[in-house]
């Protein structure tokens, strides 16, 4: 219980930290929004009024507290570019992002775990060298190149032209598969090298432990060693990584993939906000993902405790 409270307090402190950073960058030291809102020919009175509205004339702490209040009551304001409420915008685009990223995220992790397991079991033999070599090469290829090549190969007349190059008109399962396949493949390829390397390292470490020698001496088969002893022991590390990577994949992955494939999810929304200087949207995305990340971190700590009897 004391542990739970300590973790929660730590999480709250981190949330204060990340919101402070985003407040400083996006609001306090951010560019003056006055002329964006009023145009060039504003009168002094108008400027005065808008400054008051935006809080430019108030003290740092009171502005930060207001900012926090707005953030946690989800009063995120409206987009500068089309006036849509930011909360509606996010609520509309989040499911799309999840539907887009989830299959690739799951397949990428499962495939990485499988390959990492194979490589770890055959450590320093030919299969391991092959898998490690391929994943090192995979890690050396920029995301962008993978996405471009897959798009050309699968979505254009120069290639197989099986899937759409852009867009997201999903109504039912076939249309979902039609639009999700190439982004999913891209995500799997992008992450596979990193995943394989991570899982291999974790499994190699676990396989080197002495209790593995014990179960081997008591007759366990490779499947039993891997499936029971190695997997359960590596669970904390794996859970931590998977939970940590959820916000990263949702935001970072979708930023590139959605921009590239023209899919209206969180990533595209953030990209548009960046290019348009749409402060309310960008600020909401930055702060909310950071908060989500802290929440995941706290969850990972808790999961760690559940999975490992030693720290209970």
């Amino acid at each position: 219980m004391a542990f739970l409270l300590r973790k929660l307090a730590h999480g709250l402190l981190l949330i204060l930290g990340v919101t402070l950073v985003s407040f400083l960058l996006m609001v306090y030291f951010g560019p003056d929004q006055t002329y964006n809102l009023l145009g060039k020919n504003a009168t002094a009175a108008q400027i005065q009024e808008i400054h008051q509205q935006l809080g430019y004339d108030r003290a740092f702490t009171s502005r930060y507290i207001d900012y926090l209040h707005d953030l946690f009551t989800l009063q995120l304001g409206a987009s500068n570019s089309n006036g849509e409420k930011v909360i509606d915008l996010l609520w509309r685009s989040l499911p799309i992002t999840l539907a887009l990223m989830l299959p690739g995220f799951i397949i990428g992790n499962l495939l990485g775990a499988g390959l990492g397991m194979l490589a770890a079991w055959h450590r320093n033999r030919r299969l391991d060298r092959l898998i490690s070599g391929v994943s090192a090469t995979g890690m050396s290829i920029s995301f962008l190149i993978i996405v471009i090549v897959l798009q050309v190969l699968l979505c254009t007349p120069q290639g197989l032209n099986l899937f759409p190059a852009r867009g997201w008109q999903v109504t039912d399962l076939p249309s979902y598969l039609y639009y999700v396949t190439v982004p999913t493949l891209s995500l799997v390829f992008i992450t596979l090298g990193y995943n394989t390397r991570f899982f291999r390292a974790v499994f190699v470490e676990e396989l080197g432990r002495e209790h593995i020698r014990t179960v081997r001496a008591f007759g366990a088969s490779p499947a039993q060693i891997m499936g029971r002893h190695v997997l359960k022991n590596s669970l904390p590390a794996v859970l931590t990584r998977v939970l940590f990577s959820i916000p990263l994949v949702i935001v970072t992955g979708s930023l590139v993939l959605e921009t590239f494939f023209g899919i209206p999810g969180i990533g595209k929304v953030s990209f548009d906000a960046t290019t348009n200087g749409d402060q309310p949207v960008l600020q909401a995305v930055v702060a909310l993902t950071a908060v989500l990340f802290v929440v995941m971190q706290t969850l990972a700590d808790l999961a760690y405790r559940l999975a490992d009897p030693r720290v209970a």
Partner: peptide, 12 residues
């Protein structure tokens, strides 16, 4: 084995 500290699987 020699090391009873590490010879048992800690999570079972």
């Amino acid at each position: 084995f020699q090391e009873p500290q590490t010879a048992l699987d800690p999570v079972f």
